[in-house]
């Protein structure tokens, strides 16, 4: 396969004292076509990690592997290991439902349930039998997602009536209501205007205190603004992974430099 270019030199893996997620030699194929090739990286807790790279390089595929959303794609199969606090997410004894309770996800396109605003937030906790007053949880989650003031008078209206940016923040609130450890975000701002985007960026910085965030983004400025660490993927390979400052200002790989400075392709 001619697309099978390996990085020029194997990068120094970032190591953390107590990584919350560790991918070890992860390869993900769709049928036979690999989309992620032998990627190893660890994600630091309570930090924002950005995954960048050209379209089709496998960012979403890798991200979805972190909470087993690829289980729903029958063609996808994975080799290697992903550890969550040292435990294998893909071992036979792991319950994927439990995995997703702890590792939430926000999708590229806002996808609220066609139900009321408050039901969108309360459904996950209630189905999982979380104790406590549901309306309190709704308010807390909506506040954390910086949406409360805009919707507090219309909690029973349908969520589909919200603007795109509001819908996306509702999706974040929905994920927060589950009190996950990690939130995976796949281009959460791609459907949003600059104002909504900056609100969500602010939000991520606030959330970082309590959550670990992994975000896929096409927007270099966004990655530079919000993330602590940045991983650059190309053609399924992890080309470079390091502190965001370093990746954007002093990249070790030529390909990374070309990509982040826009001289790509």
């Amino acid at each position: 396969m001619n697309t099978d270019v390996m990085p020029e030199e194997v990068h120094d893996a970032m190591t953390f004292e107590k990584p919350i997620l560790e991918a070890e030699n992860v390869t993900i194929r769709y049928v036979d076509q690999p989309a992620v090739r032998d990627v190893s990286l660890s994600i630091a807790a309570n930090k924002i990690t950005a995954i960048i790279g050209p379209s089709g390089c496998g960012k979403s595929t890798l991200l979805r592997a972190f909470n087993r959303m690829n289980d729903f794609i029958p063609e996808a199969n994975m080799s290697g290991h992903i550890l969550y606090l040292g435990e294998d997410l893909y071992s036979k004894n792991t319950d994927p439902v439990e995995v997703r309770r702890r590792i939430g996800m926000v999708f590229q396109k806002p996808n609220p349930f066609p139900k009321s605003i408050s039901r969108n937030v309360s459904w996950g906790p209630s189905i999982n039998g979380y104790a406590g007053e549901s309306s309190e949880r709704v308010e807390k989650s909506l506040r954390k997602a910086a949406l409360w003031d805009e919707v507090k008078d219309r909690l029973n209206d349908s969520a589909t009536g919200l603007s795109g940016g509001q819908q996306q923040r509702l999706c974040i609130a929905r994920a927060l209501a589950m009190e996950p450890e990690i939130i995976l975000m796949d281009e959460p701002c791609s459907a949003l205007d600059p104002v909504s985007t900056s609100r969500i960026e602010d939000l991520m910085l606030e959330l970082k205190e309590h959550y670990t965030i992994v975000i896929v983004t096409h927007n270099m400025q966004q990655a530079a603004r919000v993330s602590d660490y940045t991983a650059f993927l190309e053609n399924g390979n992890l080309i470079e992974y390091g502190e965001t400052d370093q990746v954007f200002t002093r990249p070790a790989q030529k390909r990374t430099e070309e990509y982040v400075t826009g001289r790509f392709g």
């Binding site: 953390f16 004292e17 107590k18 990584p19 919350i20 630091a44 807790a45 309570n46 930090k47 969550y84 606090l85 040292g86 435990e87 294998d88 997410l89 071992s91 004894n93 792991t94 319950d95 439902v97 439990e98 995995v99 702890r102 009190e179 450890e181 205190e209 309590h210 959550y211 670990t212």
Partner: peptide, 22 residues
């Protein structure tokens, strides 16, 4: 630099959570 998860300790394991969902 890595820290433990902010809430709920690492002790409750994911591994043994697989219940047979009758």
């Amino acid at each position: 630099m890595g820290q433990g998860p902010s809430h709920s300790g690492a002790a409750d394991s994911l591994l043994k959570k697989r219940k047979f969902r009758l």
